[in-house]
Each structure stands twice: as C-alpha cells, then as structure tokens.
Design a protein around this nucleic acid. Structure first.
Lengths: 329, 329
DNA sequence: CTGAAAGCGCTTACAG
DNA sequence: CTGAAAGCGCTTACAG
C-alpha cells in the first residue's frame, strides 16, 4: 500500500541511462540527438514501470504549471458560460493542460492565482487592473474576456461576441418587419455586464437603422411579472422582443399565455443560448446559438500560442453566433 | 517583469525568524508553541511581501496535492451533473481544495490521475477495478459514485440517489391515483447508468405496490417521436409517465400538443432536475429536484474527512431529492 | 550523444 | 520555543 512513486530515476535505471536522457526523451527536447535504441529502451521502461511524471516537480522546476486558471464571477452561470467552461476544459485537456475554476469571492483572497503558478489565467469576471498587473508581472499570461477601462485594448472575445449577439437578435427581428422592439432584461445584478453588452448591441442596431430605442423591461423568473411586461410592451406598440436569454424567453412565453397574447402574432420573441429544451417551447423558440465551442477553441489557441492579451484584439473572434429560426419569431 | 517569486525564505528574513518557524505558523502546526509576537511578525511579513505558498513545492514535499480530481464520463453532462460539479467546486474551494475535471477518454491514457497526485479522486464514470486498485495503492482516496461489482460495497451516494429519484416519481404519480405508468428513457447510451438506476426505482416501487410494470419508451430529442410515444402510451392504458429528465419531459409536452392530448388530463408527466425553465413549461412541469448541493456537501465531507470509500455505504446520503409539484402531474 | 549535479520552494524529522 | 539541513522529483546549464 502507498508504495513509493515511480520516478524518472527508476526509469533511467531500468533503461540503463541517466535521468537526464530520460527527461530529454520524454520531453522531446529539440537539438538533443538521442540514439533510436536508447529512445526505445526508455519508452519500454516507462511502459513497464507505469511511470507518470510528477506535475508538482515539473512545476517547481519550471516555475510554471500546466494549469489554466479560469476566474469566474460569483453569479449563477448561464448555459453558455457552462458550455464555455466545458468546451475549454475539453480542448485544453487534449493539449495536456488542466483547467481549474475559481469563483471570485471579490475580497480578501485577492492572491488566489499565485499558488498554482498557472500557465494562463482566463478572466471572465471583472478584475482590478492592479491585480492583473501583478499577474502579468509574475509572468502569467492573462486573457481578459472583459474590456474594462476605455483605454485598454484587452482581448475582448467575450465582450465583442455579446454585443454581436444583441445585434443578431435585432437584425433578425427587423428583417421580419418589426420596427418597435422590446428588451427583456434579467433581474440578477450579477448578469449586468452580459446584459448591458447585449442590450447595447440591440440599441446600436436600432440606431443604425433609425428604429426607435428598444423598450427595456426587467423580467424576473416569474410568469405573472412577465405577463405584466408583455401587456406593457403591447400597449407601447412593441411587436417583438429580444430576451436576454432563453430562460427569460420562456418566461415571456408563459407570460403571454397568461395575458392571452399569441406568439408570434401579437408579440415575437427571440432568445439567446439555444438551450436543449428551446425546441420544445410552445411555440418552439427562435434563439441565438453562441457556438461556444468556437469561442473556446479561440481561447485555447491563444493560451497555447502564449499570445499577449493585447495582440489580437483586432481580430474578429467568437463572432460565430448564429440565429436558430423556429416559430416564436 | 517576471520578478522572482516571494518565498518562505523571504518571509523568514523579513520577520527575522527561520523558514521552519514560518512554515509552522502558516500551517498552524499543532504542538508547536510559537510566541504570539513571532506569530504576528510573520503574518505581517506575509502581508507586506504578498507571499503565497507554492502549491507545487508543497505537493512535491508532501506527496499529495490539494487537488480533487473529478473523473467524468464522456457523455453530455445533464443539468444535475453540472450542478454537482459547480457545487463541489465551490464547497471545496472554501476548504482550499481545487477541483480538476477530466473526461474519461476510455483508452490509452489510463494513468490520467497520477501526475497530479490528487488528494482524492471522485469517480462519476465507470472505472475498471484494476485502475481503482492502483489509485488506492498510490495512497489516493477514491470516492466511487458507482456501485460496480455486486460484491463491492463502494460508497454509492449517486447510485443510491438515482434509484430514489425513480421511486419518488412513481410514488407521486401513484399517490395521485395513477396505476399504469410509463417511462420515458433517453436515447443517449452514455446516460445508460443513470437511466437504468432511475427506471429501477420506478420498477421497484410499482412491484412493491402491485402495480403493473412501467411501459418504457425511448424519447429522442424530437417532438414527432414523442408524439408517437404519447399515443402508444395512451393506447396501452398508461395514464402517467415518469420522464428521465426535464428535457425528456419537455419533449413529451410538445409531443402531447402535437398528438392533441391534454396534460395532465390525458397523460400526467413528471420530470427530473427542476431546470430553471421547468416552471415556464406549458403546463408548468412537475419534477424532482435532486438538491445536488446536499450531495456535493456530502462528497466534500467525505473528502475532507479522508474517509475510506467503503466506510459509509450504509449511511443514507444524497437521498434528499424532493418533488416539486406543479401542473403537469 | 550522454551524464553528474544544482536548484526550484516547501515540510519535517532532528537537534538544541 | 526555534533553527539547520535533508529531500520530495523534476529540468537544464554545463562538462565531456
């Protein structure tokens, strides 16, 4: 029980070479020509002994681990955020990187990143500039999904794509002939950053087309409240509404039923996320699929290439969202 | 840039003590009486220098990291599984433990656990007995959520609770006067273990009450198919069906609309998960809330106490699921 | 082409 | 009550 760990030294002994050579072979160190026979003997020894390199020792020596830290805001994660985490974990796993998520408790524990010596930190929560500076000073690649100061040109994959999502909703609705749009905002204040970006996308699109400003209503997770909002929209002449996400859209559908309004005839509704049950809504929900797999792929690439967070802000990325047209709009 | 990391030696120098004392104080080592003044000076130095202990060095020295490895099956994670991961991550974070999830690629990479020297491995995917043995031999606590061999009395928190969920669905339906039950199974084969356990719960309950066997139909994510299943159930005299999860339940609701059947009058439906939109279904969905926070808490406790995986199989745990009664049943 | 040795930053017997 | 020193398992200059 708890027998000693197999080390590189064991492998070296088994293969009749030095530990150095084992390390060279296992890490495919370039410019080190190792005889093919030696190479084989080492791989055979690894196999035979069931050797697995110690991540801790490697990290200690190199000063950097194979961990990617994902800093999440302390709010209920939506379908899309979860998908991002899942996809990113999966993509990075194939590259030998592990994802650790930490929820920002936004307080004392401001040094939550240093212990792991992560390869990169992906920031999905607003982070103070000073903290980011410290991370970068420690040689950690910081990928900031949120534009924060106006002056900063941080890589804003997510921020960009959120704005795009709003535009997409508005464009779809406008193309269907709607002029007067509503916006169903979430009640949770933690969702603020997302919500504002998406709404801004809707606003900008309306402004560009000379349409009136969208009429914003907050929709809590409550059908009665949604019914009230639906009536107000109708009275205000709104014929179509962009919901912050599919959950809000479902609430709207329920509210409309309660208010005796027909969807999409009296009010068209478009959501965001394309959650699995969206197709089973009554009527089936038209929504925006954010294709987080594409965003995750982009983030993973940035991490693997070790890109500076500022380098690629100009490149359109994560803008692969697409409308899934069903019956609600 | 990339300035040298602050180490315990730096703290020791700053505080005018030895590194040993720093370690004792920071780790609250028992039976080491350190003068209060010394203690204070050390904490002040830590604060001043912004010291964060290196997880890698600590792991290397202790032979065990502060990481909990979560082995997930390679299948689409349902709402509940995701909730479990989230909750567990959160609970363990408070105890200074980090969760890393790895998806089982069920193949070559069978030693995916050794590199991290994890404190514990939580297995949500079926794992070969030999692999588990090897983990335990390496001194790693293995928490197996799945009963595997009949002979094994592994801690089966999840398995147990899945069976319970099925019972709960059947009991609710039977209490409402239904005698002839149906079961809506998922198409994804990866869900098999969950599905079988839940269905068994329904079966066992029916058997105990002398009710006929539940009529099982597979429901793919397709309303047409669901409509067919709904008609078949009606023709077979089934008056209520337990859906594998809320997604399947939503499909059933859509199928019933298509088939012109009224819910719950013609067919009662009960789901599992209580996903956020369940309340907005048409009609609002009756379902089972698995309260994963309770399960996560239980797992976290087991990990923190370092319990043997076999010790607590007798204790009822994770059986806190509860029916959320709405209109669909 | 291969190896001996230093050192990454901790924890912990051991000595005082 | 406190400290000097060994050693965890790697990688990598350096020497040959």
């Amino acid at each position: 029980m708890a027998r000693r760990r197999v080390t590189a030294a064991d492998v070296a002994r088994e293969a009749g070479v030095s530990q150095t050579t084992v390390s060279y072979v296992l890490n495919d160190v370039p410019h080190q020509k190792i005889a093919a026979g030696t190479r084989q003997r080492i791989h055979a020894a690894v196999e035979k002994l069931g050797y697995t390199p110690s991540a801790a020792a490697r990290t200690l020596r190199k000063g950097q681990s194979d961990i990617v830290l994902l800093l999440l805001p302390d709010m209920p994660l939506g379908h899309t955020a979860i998908e991002l985490v899942e996809e990113l974990t999966q993509v990075l796993q194939k590259q030998g990187l592990s994802v650790i998520t930490r929820i920002e408790d936004g307080g004392s524990n401001a040094a939550q990143w240093a212990d792991l010596a992560p390869r990169a930190v992906v920031v999905l929560a607003p982070v103070e500039a000073s903290r980011r500076k410290r991370m970068e000073a420690a040689g950690i690649q910081v990928i900031n999904a949120w534009r924060r100061d106006p002056g900063e040109t941080a890589q804003d994959t997510l921020a960009r794509s959120q704005h795009h999502v709003g535009r997409l909703q508005a464009r779809y609705l406008a193309a269907a002939g709607h002029q007067h749009l509503g916006y169903a905002a979430p009640a949770d204040p933690g969702l603020g950053p997302f919500y504002e970006l998406r709404l801004q996308g809707v606003r900008d699109f309306c402004a560009n087309l000379g349409l009136p400003e969208p009429v914003v209503r907050v929709i809590d997770a409550d059908a009665d409240e949604a019914a009230t909002a639906v009536r107000e929209w109708r009275d205000a002449g709104v014929t179509a509404v962009c919901a912050f996400n599919d959950e809000a859209a479902f609430a709207l559908l329920a509210g409309a039923r309660m208010a005796g309004l027909a969807i999409p005839e009296d009010l068209a509704v478009i959501g965001v996320d394309d959650i699995p049950v969206a197709r089973f809504a009554h009527p089936p929900l038209t929504t925006v699929d954010q294709r987080m797999s594409v965003v995750a792929e982009g983030l993973a690439q940035a991490i693997l290439r070790g890109e500076e967070s500022t380098v690629n802000s100009g490149r359109p990325r994560g803008t692969s969202a697409t409308v899934v047209a069903r019956d609600s709009a």
